[in-house]
């Protein structure tokens, strides 16, 4: 039971970062549940049907998901705001329905026999991802991403290929979600399309918004709080979803920029001057 919480919190931290990476370039994705599914099922096929070890299956599935993400990202990222939300939501529905229609991966009944992932695996991966994102935040690439997010037209006029930057960010986010999905699947033993429904995608975006969208540590904080909070209020039984919802609304009202705020101007200035 404790192991489950540690595992699912870690998976959700990875998923939150997968959305954060896409948000860095100014796009929002409601398709990360779908990328998680492709990663989970892809790695599952590789381990159960082709006998590959998990350490090979997950990276291959992640690369495949990144390619898929970039191919659909290329046309999808031409849209913005509410339209991009609709497009990525559509992707989430399509992927789930497609998996249900493929007998090879078990259709609606799901896929079984997935083993090998332990909670500590997820946290090692999360640690590495966190470290990489922290290093990224100290490179000029972070500034390029900030510029693309703040004003795409100006970024282009400065010579930045904004489509390329956004597509790479989208593919990276898809790959991260796929890694989370692969680990999740091989912890669960059995997965079915319901595990990767549209609500998963919505929840992950919620983690990020609640944690704070412009701070590397906000998304994992949001993910941890949102994963563990329902357990902490377990005693409320039937009232649980309502209290959970009310807490979310209050948080958004009290801290609209998330639990962790934007990087302070002084911190920004100091970082910018670091040679």
């Amino acid at each position: 039971m404790i192991a489950d919480h540690i595992m699912f919190t870690g998976v959700n931290v990875l998923l939150a970062w997968s959305v954060y990476v896409i948000l860095l370039s100014g796009s929002v994705s409601f398709a990360n549940g779908a990328f998680m599914a492709i990663g989970g099922y892809g790695a599952g096929v590789l381990t159960t049907k082709f006998g590959l070890p998990l350490v090979a299956g997950i990276p291959i599935a992640a690369l495949g998901t990144a390619a898929f993400g970039m191919i659909i990202g290329l046309p999808a990222l031409r849209t913005r705001g509410i339209y991009l939300i609709l497009v990525t939501t559509g992707i989430a529905f399509c992927v789930k329905n497609a998996i249900e229609a493929i007998p090879y991966v078990g259709g609606v009944r799901g896929m079984r026999g997935l083993v090998g992932a332990e909670p500590w695996h997820v946290w090692v991966v999360a640690g590495v991802v966190g470290l990489l994102l922290w290093l990224l935040s100290r490179t000029p690439l972070q500034r390029i991403l900030d510029a693309v997010r703040e004003d795409e037209l100006v970024a282009r006029s400065l010579g930045i290929n904004t489509v390329y930057v956004k597509v790479i960010a989208f593919g990276t986010g898809a790959a991260l979600a796929a890694v989370a999905g692969g680990l999740y699947a091989h912890y669960m033993y059995v997965i079915n399309p319901e595990h990767f429904g549209i609500l998963v995608s919505v929840y992950v975006v919620l983690y990020v918004i609640l944690g704070g969208v412009n701070n590397l540590w906000g998304p994992p904080l949001g993910a941890a709080v949102m994963t563990l909070l329902p357990e902490l209020i377990r005693g409320l039984q039937a009232w649980r979803p309502i209290v959970f919802g009310v807490v979310i609304v209050i948080l958004l009202l009290v801290r609209p920029e998330g639990l962790l705020p934007f990087r302070s101007p002084t911190a920004r200035a100091k970082e910018a001057r670091r040679g």
Binding site: A147, E150, A269, A272, R273
Partner: peptide, 12 residues
């Protein structure tokens, strides 16, 4: 880029 510093606007 209003949320970036003056220096960052030029660095970028």
């Amino acid at each position: 880029f209003k949320r970036m510093t003056v220096l960052e606007n030029v660095l970028v």
